[in-house]
Design a protein around this nucleic acid. Structure first.
Length: 420
RNA sequence: GUGGGAUUAGCUCAGUUGGUUAGAGCGCUUGUUUGUGGCACAAGAGGUCAUGGGUUCGACUCCCAUAUCCCACCCCA
């Protein structure tokens, strides 16, 4: 074999693509019910956008971006996530003058140069939502409820919501001091990563997976205990709002989120079935991001759900997504002449909304029957010389083999009313 | 970037201390006589055994390198 798809990319074949379509349409429909409008943004942006928004010290930026120079000498990056591009678009298109809040959703591919493992790809799909202009915790609860509604619609049973607050720049600065005071005496026992995190971003030391670090971090002061009054009120408001909606959650102070733009609310839906990381979707508030990108200060919040991880979870929970059968009728034909008549008949039926397939390879009648049986097409009609002459044919329901004599001109309505 | 396992037909896999023309199941195509399927039976197509070197009289089998896939660490969706 000469060519294969690139590392970390995947073909989504017809036998699987219906699952994607179901998930995409359910997500779009639910977002629509909430008043979120779809936005489609470019696949690549200027590199600097991601340095500024995602943060130039994050792993995503430092080692995972697909960055290249185009023929005009510009530094271009394939988007590693959706929020940055949406925020850029929000600012560039002056959406702050739209009625607030501005509610957007999207369905994109994103790219991260990583070593792959379960639930992790270099090109992956995200369903996401962003809401701009609403400051209070109600909108936080709203976007979380979108996910809950989506999971319910798709039949997903067990989902675990974890929430946390990582505060605002003011309380986080204060907390960082406290955290460093706590870790300082233990620093020599901790891993190299944590030692360098100590100066750069002590917050990340909390969710270190190293056993020795984890033991030390377990007793570390938690940011939610040191939130400023405003942030505390916001978090309490979110909890109350979730409870009012009947959405159960856990507080997980280990959720830090690896992108720099997050403030206050952060959350994840987790599972053990989607790879070691366990995150099906993650999101949070980014109240400083719009101004960082050059817009008027505007609060924002959003999430991204990994479509591959979502589908992995569906499969792990044994939830089948129904396949839809667009072709209703198979027309078997017995000769070159009847094949043309079958094509004419099918052409007309499709205009009436009945999907049809016919044999075009001149295969034996038996082979055509086998094909019709295997494809699961629910109705069959044999078009031979007799049927053409009489204008009548037997319409057969493949499931139970029952047949009814029908005038060819009445086929569409006969199929529609078969079970009536 | 670090580490472990794998790579033989479209798919899932056999392949015996290295020994002639490389196998099975599923799938696919065709057929089992005249126009009714899923089953059964039969036949057929499809492989430079991931790629490149090496050892050997001889390599799918042993050695090395590369690529790809799977999994874990880091981190994220």
């Amino acid at each position: 074999m000469k060519y294969s798809c690139q590392k970390g990319t995947k073909d989504i074949l017809p036998e699987e693509v219906y699952k994607w379509q179901k998930a995409e349409s359910a997500f779009a429909e639910i977002c629509g019910q909430y008043g979120y409008k779809e936005i489609r943004i470019p696949t690549f942006e200027q590199t600097d956008l991601f340095l500024r928004s995602v943060g130039d010290t994050t792993d995503v930026v430092q080692k995972e971006m697909y960055t290249f120079e185009d023929k005009g000498g510009r530094s271009i990056t394939l988007r590693p996530e959706g929020t940055a591009g949406v925020v850029r678009s929000f600012v560039e298109n002056g959406m702050s003058s739209l009625p607030s809040p501005v509610r957007l959703f999207y369905n994109i591919t994103a790219f991260r140069y990583e070593k792959m493992q379960k639930g992790r790809y270099r090109e992956f799909h995200q369903f996401g939502v962003e809401a701009f202009g609403a400051e209070g915790p109600a909108i936080d609860a709203e976007i979380i409820s979108i996910l809950v509604a989506f999971f319910e619609r798709m039949g997903l049973k067990k989902t675990k919501l974890c929430i946390n607050s990582i505060g605002c720049p003011t309380c986080r600065a204060e907390y960082n001091k406290i955290l460093k005071d706590y870790f300082r005496p233990h620093l020599s026992e901790m891993c190299e990563d944590c030692q360098s995190r100590f100066e750069k971003n002590p917050l990340r030391m909390i969710d270190c997976k190293e056993e020795k670090c984890g033991a030390i971090a377990a007793n570390a002061p938690r940011l939610i205990d040191y939130l400023c009054d405003d942030c505390k009120a916001h978090f309490e408001g979110l909890k109350a709002n979730l409870e009012a909606l009947g959405i159960s959650y856990e507080i997980d102070s280990g959720i830090v989120r690896g992108l720099d733009y997050y403030t206050r609310t952060v959350f994840e839906f987790k599972s053990e079935n989607v790879g070691s990381q366990g995150t099906i979707c993650g999101g949070g508030r980014y109240d400083g991001l719009v101004s960082e990108i050059g817009g008027q200060p505007t609060p924002g919040i959003g999430f991204a759900m990994g479509a591959e991880r979502f589908l992995l979870e569906m499969e792990a929970q044994g939830i089948e997504i129904e396949k839809d059968q667009k072709v209703q009728l198979y027309i078997a034909n017995l000769s070159p002449e009847t094949q043309i008549e079958a094509q004419k008949l099918a052409f007309g039926l499709r205009k009436q909304g009945i999907g049809c397939e016919i044999d075009l390879m001149g295969r034996s009648f038996r082979a055509q029957m086998k094909y019709a049986g295997k494809t699961g097409i629910p109705f069959l009609l044999v078009l031979g010389d007799d049927e053409i002459a009489s204008g009548k044919a037997k319409l057969k329901a493949m499931a139970d083999g029952t047949e009814k004599e029908i005038a060819l001109s009445d086929l569409a309505s006969a199929i529609r009313s078969w079970n009536a």
